[in-house]
Design a protein around this nucleic acid. Structure first.
Lengths: 162, 162
DNA sequence: AGGTACATGTAAGTAGTTACATGATTAC
DNA sequence: GTAATCATGTAACTACTTACATGTACCT
């Protein structure tokens, strides 16, 4: 695919756990091409550029996938604000939690659509792995929804005097 | 508290949803001090420096807490590797999932300790908010554990031929 | 013909960590 | 007295995003 199409695929398919910008994609694609890990095979009268991974690229990919994943530094703005909830005020907290709940519900609907899309396709050996990542999103979103709803009830109890 | 103590508090208390490095803390503390939002009040023969938030600092904090939280770009190395699970190989996937499960279990033990610590303290108006963030961690960790364990079973089914 | 989507690339800026340098205080 | 901890600060570096610049292909 093209770098442009690659970015769309990353956004649409890996969107809930990964992201890349053009500023990352194009230089990286150029480096990979220079190292012979991908090839630009623009066929005959083809209007669209087609990068494809090479045999050496596949080897390299396997090696990179085997590297231990490094966890990103945690940075959750919602939880930081709730931690200082007394300073923020109870209405601000309620807004944050309602937003968190709504976001979780939307995500669940999105995952449901992705899951049905995958299951409607001709099954391949990759599908079980794709579904693993969807399942991770579903578990996380359900947990987020449950937490937000419980927490809204806790706020009610705080407000009605404890 | 001192910048040094602040960093320890961030690591120990907010560790599961926030982090700051010295390279962030000291310049920021200097800026806040210059703007009169914090004050260094080193009492008489006190060996330890004590930064404290000022009245204007509290106002500023409230304003900053009211800003909408911006979500960081997603970057989950474990899910990225599992997405390409067929390339990584089933044993590599198993390692990733076992690590994810163990990490979740450890986190749950940590949250349990924090919760008991908070509940043992003299209750303050802040405690319900602290517990909200602990609860978020517990929900997320329980979801991660359940997902990892389900997924390990899925791997078994993949391996035993589908 | 003109707008939208496709396509690439880069410079400037943002946000942060890591590593280093330095010294004071406390514990044993 | 010496090792560990407390304490501050900064320069170099990493890893990205945003915004801009530029052009092509496709649809109506």
């Amino acid at each position: 695919m093209s770098g442009y199409a690659l970015r769309q695929a990353i956004r649409d398919v890996l969107g809930h756990f990964w992201s890349e910008s053009f500023g990352q994609i194009y230089p990286t694609l150029a480096d990979l091409s220079a190292d012979g890990l991908v090839e630009l095979t623009r066929a005959n009268g083809d209007s669209k550029p087609r990068f494809a991974i090479t045999a050496r690229g596949l080897e390299h990919l396997r090696a990179r996938l085997s590297e231990p994943p490094q966890s990103a530094r945690p940075r959750n703005g919602t939880l930081l604000r709730l931690f200082f909830g007394r300073r923020l005020g109870i209405d601000g907290c309620r807004d944050l939690l309602e937003q968190a709940r709504n976001q979780a519900v939307e995500q669940l609907a999105g995952f449901d659509a992705i899951r049905r899309e995958i299951e409607a396709e001709e099954p391949t050996d990759d599908h079980p792995y794709f579904l693993l990542t969807v399942s991770a999103g579903e578990h996380a979103a359900r947990a987020a929804q449950a937490w937000a709803e419980e927490s809204l009830l806790v706020l009610d109890r705080i407000e009605s005097g404890s």
